[in-house]
């Protein structure tokens, strides 16, 4: 527990924020870098996923990509790209993008796919244009799942951005790796706690956004059990 005291002292010490470690800058770096990757993944993955979910084509590809990406070791990807592209932000950016894309794609695809086809058909039948079907029916109903995809991508990215310091000396991983070299366990622990807190804050933000989207998609929410019972009731009728 001594170590934790040391770690917390280090975090609270103004010198850590102004001195060699520049914690403020590290946090911003970490967040900005993660946000950039996530934005790129969203710009590429969401339209592609929606197109796949909407048309039903390319489904196998999404499944293969997501299960393949899970098996791919992050550190291996980082280091091989680091060797290929050299020191700098390009390698980690690319590696993180490769990791963030599958969950975003899968979320967008699964979200649109999960929207009841009968509802979509009904909207079309009463005169929604294709764009209105997408914007007023499919997207709001799919939003919780789409945001869920972004959420897992964000976790993945924040986590891997820590590891990225191993090859690019950026973000909150930087003090962690420095301290690893100098054997300052208190500093390592402090940096780790900061990263964990950062991840938790991001997770909670996404949780709130996702709940808000779910409330819009399913304004009248029941507990899973009751929804399940209701679904059964319906099929029995």
């Amino acid at each position: 527990m001594n170590l934790f005291l040391e770690a917390i002292q280090w975090i609270l010490d103004p010198a850590s924020w102004t001195g060699e470690h520049q914690l403020g800058a590290r946090v911003l770096e970490h967040l900005a870098f993660s946000a950039a990757v996530l934005l790129a993944a969203a710009l590429l993955g969401i339209p592609a996923g929606i197109a796949i979910g909407h048309s039903g084509r390319g489904r196998g590809l999404v499944i293969a990509l997501t299960s393949g990406a899970r098996a791919l070791p992050t550190l291996g990807l980082l280091t091989i790209l680091g060797l290929g592209l050299g020191i700098g932000l390009e390698a980690p950016f690319l590696a993180l993008l490769v990791l963030a894309l599958p969950p975003v794609l899968a979320g967008a695809y699964a979200g649109v796919e999960s929207v009841d086809r009968a509802t979509v058909g009904a909207a079309r039948a009463i005169g929604f244009t294709e764009w209105q079907v997408l914007a007023c029916v499919e997207l709001p109903l799919a939003a919780p799942v789409i945001i869920g995809g972004l959420r897992s991508a964000a976790l993945q990215v924040i986590s891997t951005a820590t590891l990225a310091a191993y090859i690019a000396d950026t973000g909150l991983g930087r003090p962690l790796f420095r301290a690893l070299k100098t054997q300052e366990y208190g500093v390592m622990l402090g940096a780790s706690i900061l990263v964990a807190l950062l991840a938790l804050v991001v997770e909670l933000c996404f949780h709130a956004i996702q709940s808000a989207a779910a409330r819009r998609a399913e304004p009248h929410r029941t507990t899973p059990r009751r929804a399940h019972a209701r679904a059964r009731e319906r099929t029995h009728r």
């Binding site: 934790f4 976790l155 820590t162 590891l163 991983g173 390592m188 964990a196 991001v202 997770e203």
Partner: peptide, 18 residues
């Protein structure tokens, strides 16, 4: 459990031992 999962692996490797 969801929050535990959010903690980056490297950080967890450092936080758990003490």
């Amino acid at each position: 459990t969801g929050l535990l999962y959010a903690i980056p692996s490297l950080a967890l490797f450092v936080i758990l031992p003490p």
